[in-house]
Design a protein around this nucleic acid. Structure first.
Lengths: 189, 189
DNA sequence: TTGACTTTAGACCGGTCCGTCTACACAACT
DNA sequence: AGTTGTGTAGACGGACCGGTCTAAAGTCAA
């Protein structure tokens, strides 16, 4: 009656790839390394993925889905009132930045690392940002702002700016700065 | 009486390295490529630089000095009044984003690509951001704002956020959004 | 039991990585 | 004329790159 040891190889490979790409960078991690750390044969990897590039794209895609689910859950947990939820976005960022494993936004990083704009990962990064903007728009709309879309676009600048600043400064202070700016623009919207 | 053909090899190597690193990424460009495109012998490169890592650091350093000089010159050219200069920062960004060769901020990119926080390039990136923040602080102080430092920190979030958004969206619209937010926070400071 | 499919381990391919080394050319200065 | 310093061209090393191939072992259902 034992469960098969949860051994979906494909998922295992994606887990390892996602983790390594995030921690060390896409270019810095080779296929052999992913093979070794996932304890799988090289042919198994190439049986499930056409190439490293498609593995990159699929890992990014799944990473995005998980990240956004976690992000939304954290925001919704921190606040109930619509207006507060918007500010809770920045509290969530702050907690993320303070995490030991924080290495920036995987999708910003991917867009930077994948210099070729035609790489599939670039579209996934762009889609991720669009999803986040849509989420912000849903919050601003829920809070009753007119021009919620415009406001969401402004808030997203703050989110991305805070992430980049956190990486470069090695501190979560940028989240608090961004929160303050967000409060200002909400009060004047 | 001819001038030596301006052949400072060291500068030539830095020029080529800076350009290639920016356009294609630090990891994606090999030493052999830099050697070939600068038309110099490999030993000459290693005679002037200890390693690729030190070349990266020196190229970044020089790139930063040039970039900031150009940036400040552009801002000062676009506006004379202190308050206007602050907004001209975002007009300068917009023009930069629209340039064909725009590939983001070399220092954000470097911080992302150089996963090891101990890499010399990481400090140069951090210093670059500090220089920009200092410049913004000089503008806000000149414009007579109290707490000019705090304001500068907020403006910088917008600058960095706009740059990242421009890369991912492939558009200069983020500069206009950031400008609008900047105007809002200036009016309420 | 047979047959179809997956996975394994690792050899192997051509190419590139960073960095070193050699052997030689061309200066400039003494 | 000889020395010193800087440059050239390219071979070379060992490691790694992404990707293919093979031969054997494991798995599962008919």
């Amino acid at each position: 009656m034992e469960m098969p040891p949860s051994t979906n190889l494909r998922e295992k490979i994606l887990d390892v790839a996602t983790d390594l790409f995030y921690r060390e960078g896409i270019h810095a991690v080779g296929v052999d390394r992913i093979v070794k750390e996932s304890g799988v044969a090289k042919m198994t990897l190439y049986n499930h993925f056409d190439s490293k590039d498609t593995l990159i794209a699929e890992a990014l895609k799944r990473h995005g889905e998980q990240w956004r689910a976690d992000f939304v859950a954290s925001v919704e947990k921190k606040a109930k009132a619509p207006w507060d939820k918007i500010l809770a976005v920045f509290d969530t960022l702050e907690a993320w930045f303070d995490g030991k494993e924080f290495r920036g936004c995987a999708f910003i990083n991917a867009a930077v690392e994948l210099a070729d704009t035609r790489h599939a990962g670039r579209k996934i990064s762009a889609d991720h940002m669009k999803h986040i903007r849509d989420y912000l728009a849903s919050l601003t709309q829920e809070a009753g702002f007119k021009r919620s879309g415009e406001l969401a676009g402004q808030l997203q600048l703050l989110v991305q700016g805070a992430i980049v600043a956190a990486v470069i400064e090695g501190s979560s202070d940028s989240a608090r700065r961004a929160r303050k700016v967000a409060a200002t623009i909400l009060e004047n919207a």
